[in-house]
């Protein structure tokens, strides 16, 4: 029924049940503009009767061609009733008066504009930096993961000549307290005859302590400490012999035992990881 009423066009006034006048869809020509008083160009009190009275109704500017002594040919009625929009609510108080020069107040207005721009940009830069750093830091490892990634070893528990195994990041970690004799032997090894040439000093921080990962570089078995031809480690799986510095000396393994990052907190403690 509603669609019929809407589409019936010219008949719609007769098909409506009510005769109440409601506001039409026509909007003001310049919406959203504050209007302070009407400012019509024509004088509505003047009688609109003859050519002479029309003379006063027409706008004073624009194309007007005189064809007689007192007649105005270019009489334009269109747009003479348009209200002049009043933008004074949007203007700064310094430039409200159109007759006053805006030159004197230009500096303060400019400083204000730059200050507002600068302050907004400062806050924007801070926000952007915070958001970006939040996202980037969310990619790094969390604190509980980082806490598990380190192990502290109390060195006084390990007697000289002994090797102890710890679990570190799911892998066995060998901490070996070497004797003076072992240190002298390993330092004196000729690097040229090694498969993976590496001097003993490059593999240890303190010569008494060798800290290596207990994973054979061949196929990943766990070597046995204080065994093998060189008195260091021996892998039972395929017979790789490592010396007391964890270097490969004999067997199928291609590389020395891996040395993790570690640092001595004090004389008694070492932190691995």
């Amino acid at each position: 029924m509603m669609s019929l009423a809407a589409r019936s066009g010219a008949f719609s006034p007769y098909m409506q049940a009510t005769a109440v006048t409601v506001a039409g869809p026509l909007q003001a020509l310049v919406p959203g503009v504050v209007v302070k008083g009407e400012n019509n160009l024509i004088n509505p009190k003047k009688q609109f009767l003859c050519r002479e009275s029309l003379n006063g109704q027409s706008p004073k500017t624009g194309p007007a061609v005189t064809v007689s002594i007192n007649g105005c040919a270019g009489v334009r009625f269109a747009h003479t009733d348009i209200r002049i929009p009043d933008f004074s609510d949007y203007r700064r108080p310094e430039v409200l008066d159109p007759s006053k020069s805006s030159q004197e107040s230009s500096e303060s207005r400019r400083i204000f504009s730059y200050l507002v721009t600068g302050a907004t940009t400062v806050v924007g830069v801070y926000t952007a930096k915070t958001v970006v750093s939040q996202f980037v830091s969310s990619m790094s490892a969390s604190a509980d993961v980082l806490a598990l990634s380190k192990i502290e070893v109390k060195l006084s528990d390990i007697p000289e000549g002994k090797n102890m195994t710890f679990k570190w990041r799911g892998k066995p970690l060998f901490v070996r307290h070497r004797t003076e004799k072992e240190i002298a032997t390993e330092v004196g090894v000729n690097i040229a005859e090694l498969r993976d040439p590496q001097h003993d000093n490059d593999r240890v921080i303190k010569p008494s302590w060798v800290i290596v990962l207990g994973v054979c570089t061949h196929l990943g078995c766990v070597p046995i400490a204080n065994a093998g031809d060189y008195g260091g480690y021996y892998c039972p799986c395929h017979g790789s012999h490592y010396d007391a510095s964890g270097r490969i000396r004999k067997g199928p393994a291609p590389l020395n035992l891996e040395v993790p990052y570690y640092e001595f907190i004090d004389d008694e403690t070492v932190m691995v990881g």
């Binding site: 730059y114 600068g118 400062v122 830069v125 930096k129």
Partner: peptide
């Protein structure tokens, strides 16, 4: 200088905030 001012201002603002 405006850009430099904004950068320095952002650093100061971050600390203060």
């Amino acid at each position: 200088t405006f850009a430099v001012t904004i950068m320095v201002g952002a650093i100061l603002f971050e600390r203060v905030f």
